[in-house]
Design a protein around this nucleic acid. Structure first.
Length: 359
DNA sequence: AACGCGGGGGC
DNA sequence: GCCCCAGCGTT
């Protein structure tokens, strides 16, 4: 609409973007594969953190075909250090699915895209608008922050009501000529100008339209519920070696680090030490006597803190081998398995530089 | 609607 | 320390 507030805000954001646009690797292309990979990486991940991972990922898997022909292990290994590993497993799943059932072509509408594993409403809108110029607004943390501040919305950031209002307003605000470019303008504006915490209101081209700023509420919007405080967990790892080999265990289930590898684990309550019975449960071997105990490593996740201690041991003479759930790997090959950062950190400290993650 | 899922960087 | 990030899937 000409002359409307939306029209004014849109043109000011576009002008701001022409001056302040970030030069990012995935902005050199409109290839759906590259847009998709970048959007998955950027889910809950800052651009500054995502860039190097993106370059590494597309260098290892330059196109959909290469990714689909890899193994899940390869993909997880390349993903190592990024967290939220379900993203990597879904990325692989979707690559195989598109190759086998979509003739190797990404769908071009949000309705179709959102059916794919790991693609929700935000990512579907991002791919459709950026790769296919489909007119749909992306609604991410940046956009929510901008709109909630502009209109002084005081609902919780995750409430359905807020989301609905923002959908309506961003549809109206969207630039129909080049929706993908405008969506990216909004996101740059959110992360560089309308920042969390203390935003740059004094230099903001929208400050005279922004209800949050005009009422001194910019540091209180958007609102979000208090987080639960984090849980503490105590992991005791058995580094069981013999003849240059060590045993690893692949994590499964509804827990952290799904599909990543670690040492046989005894998780104990606070203050309790593992005994021979604990190690038996973890390995199927009785009479294990650790010879050396590491310092305790603390590793913080968003929602829990891991306290990890590593116990070095060898298999007692004449004892049987561990059960099938453990894999026996040459010590120098540990680095080829996808590992939680905590484990990689211990390995680096324990003296073999090869264990260190490579950027 | 609520929860679980990583890791890093800014303050 | 605490906060939050180009969210998604499950329950």
């Amino acid at each position: 609409m000409k002359g409307s507030v939306s029209e004014t805000i849109r043109s000011k954001i576009k002008a701001w973007y022409r001056k302040n646009r970030r030069d990012l690797p995935w902005r050199k292309t409109s290839d759906p594969y590259h847009i998709w990979v970048s959007e998955i990486i950027l889910q809950q991940t800052r651009v500054s953190q995502g860039i190097s991972h993106y370059l590494k990922f597309v260098s290892r898997f330059p196109d959909l075909k290469t990714l689909a022909a890899a193994t899940e292990e390869d993909v997880l290994k390349t993903w190592q250090g990024m967290g939220y590993y379900t993203r990597a497993r879904n990325l692989y799943k979707t690559a195989v699915l598109i190759t086998n059932s979509y003739n190797g072509i990404f769908p071009g509408t949000p309705e179709e895209l959102v059916k794919l594993p790991g693609i929700g409403s935000y990512t579907a809108a991002a791919i459709a608008s950026i790769a296919y110029r489909y007119p749909v607004p992306t609604i991410d943390a940046n956009v929510i922050r901008i709109i909630a501040r502009l209109y002084g919305m005081q609902q919780d950031i995750h409430s359905v009501g807020l989301k609905k209002k923002i959908e309506t307003l961003t549809m109206e605000l969207l630039d129909q000529e080049n929706p993908g470019e405008f969506n990216q303008a909004m996101m740059d504006f959110g992360s560089l100008q309308c920042t969390p915490g203390v935003p740059g209101c004094s230099s903001c081209p929208l400050n005279q339209y922004c209800k949050a700023h005009l009422t001194g509420m910019e540091d209180k919007i958007p609102m979000r519920k208090e987080k639960k405080k984090l849980q503490h967990r105590y992991f005791h790892y058995l580094v069981l070696t013999d003849h240059g080999h060590v045993w690893l265990h692949k994590r499964t289930g509804n827990d952290i680090w799904h599909s990543l590898y670690e040492f046989p684990l005894a998780e104990m309550p606070a203050g309790k030490q593992p005994d021979a019975e604990s190690w038996y449960k973890a390995t199927g071997i009785s009479d294990i006597q650790p010879e050396k105990i590491s310092k305790t490593y603390r590793h913080t996740l968003s929602h829990q803190m891991i306290h990890a201690t590593f116990y070095q041991a060898t298999i007692p003479p004449g004892n049987k081998q561990p059960g099938d759930e453990l894999v026996r790997v040459p010590v120098q090959s540990i680095g080829t398995y996808p590992l939680p950062v905590l484990i990689a950190r211990y390995l680096a400290d324990s003296g073999t530089a090869d264990y260190r993650q490579k950027g």
